[in-house]
Each structure stands twice: as C-alpha cells, then as structure tokens.
C-alpha cells in the first residue's frame, strides 16, 4: 500500500469497524492479495515463458479465492473452470505452437521496458490515490452472502437472458473467426518464404 493510504488506516467507520482492527476475512484477503500480486509481477517479469504462464495460473487462482472471500462463489468457480481450465491451456498451446524456448529467453522483454515501468508506476500511483481517496470510508457488508448460484442464475436467466444469448452468438462468431484465421492456406507457406 502506498503512503497515500496512511490516513485511511486511522479512519474509523460508522459501525465502529477500523482498519487497525481487521477481521479474519480481511486478513486472509490481504494475504491472498499479496500472493496474487506477487504471482502477477512474476508473470510479467519472468524470463521463462512457460513459467510466466504458470505464474498466471497462480494469480488467477488466487483471484478465485478472493471472489470466494467476497462471497461471490459462482464467479469463483467459473473463474477456476474457464480461466484456469481453458484460457491458460490455450495460452500454453500458443506458446508451444510459436516454438517458445523452454529455458530462459533473454529477449523476453522489449526495449520499451523502462518507459513501460514508468508509465505503469505512474498509473498505479494515480489510480491508487484516487481509489483510496474515494472509498476510504466505505465498507462491504459480508454478513449476507451476495453471490450464491441460485440467486445469480435467476438474475441471469430472467433479467439478463437477452445479453446472455447475444453473448453466445458472439462466442460462436469468435469460434468461427478463430478457425478461419488459423486455417492453413496454401499460399501461406509461399508468402512465408517471400
């Protein structure tokens, strides 16, 4: 946490809850958050390409735990199933098909790296300042779980059914598009030679 958040630590909520006296859930949340952030940083800095993908798995898995802590259990399982199950596998396949080296590759980062670091740090500073400044007196009531599958399912198939169907069409289109793009055409090899 940055220094901008320090005054918040002393702030006392209406319900008498304080940052200085965190609940158990909050402690677990912060610990998992450290794991998630660490894995994410390793993911974007690792020289081993396959390791980067595995760190991504750790970060996304930790995120699923955070969802659970926020009582959004359905989302958590979906996160585990889709992200860990398919997306990371797809990425690993992508790495293999593009012949990524197994060992450390020294040119994993481009020359844009210092600039990227500066920009990312500036973005982090700005956004953290803004977020902390905006929500320092806001508390989440976790006493009633708000993400159970039945309630979410009802909402999804009543209110959100039309966007849901549109999304299915979009997925189909993406599927077709991916097939069309990645299908090997005869002239590909010739153009590759050119």
């Amino acid at each position: 946490m940055s220094a901008g958040a320090l005054p918040v630590l002393a702030a006392v909520g209406e319900s008498g809850r304080s940052v200085l006296s965190p609940s158990g859930v909050e402690i677990v949340f912060l610990l998992v958050a450290v794991v998630v952030l660490g894995a994410a940083i390793l993911c974007v800095t690792s020289r081993h390409l396959v390791h980067a993908a595995l760190y991504l798995v750790v970060a996304l898995g930790g995120l699923a735990v955070e969802y659970l802590l926020l009582t959004a259990e359905f989302i958590a399982w979906v996160q585990v199933l889709i992200y860990l199950g398919s997306v990371v596998v797809l990425l690993l396949f992508g790495l293999m098909l593009t012949r990524a080296p197994i060992g450390p590759s020294p040119d994993a980062d481009s020359r844009n790296k210092p600039v990227a670091l500066v920009v990312a740090l500036a973005a982090a500073a700005t956004l953290v300042t803004l977020v902390v400044d905006a929500f320092r007196t806001t508390w989440i009531d976790l006493s009633t779980p708000h993400g159970r599958s039945d309630a979410l399912g009802e909402s999804l198939f009543r209110t959100w059914v039309l966007p849901f169907e549109a999304l299915s069409v979009l997925l189909l289109a993406a599927l077709v598009g991916a097939i069309v793009i990645s299908r090997a055409r005869r002239d590909d090899s010739e153009e590759g030679r050119r």
Binding site: A33, L37, V44, L69, L70, A116, L127, F135
Partner: peptide
C-alpha cells in the same frame, strides 16, 4: 470488509498487467 482492499488490489493488478502489455 473495507472496500479499499479489493479496489486497490484491482488497481495494482491492472497496472501490473499494463506493464506487461507495454514491456
């Protein structure tokens, strides 16, 4: 739970991803 915790985590995660995209 304090809302700042998940929000800050999201911001930091976003910036780490941004760094990755740029670097």
């Amino acid at each position: 739970m304090h809302l700042v915790h998940p929000a800050t985590l999201a911001v930091l995660l976003f910036c780490v991803g941004l760094y990755g995209v740029l670097a």
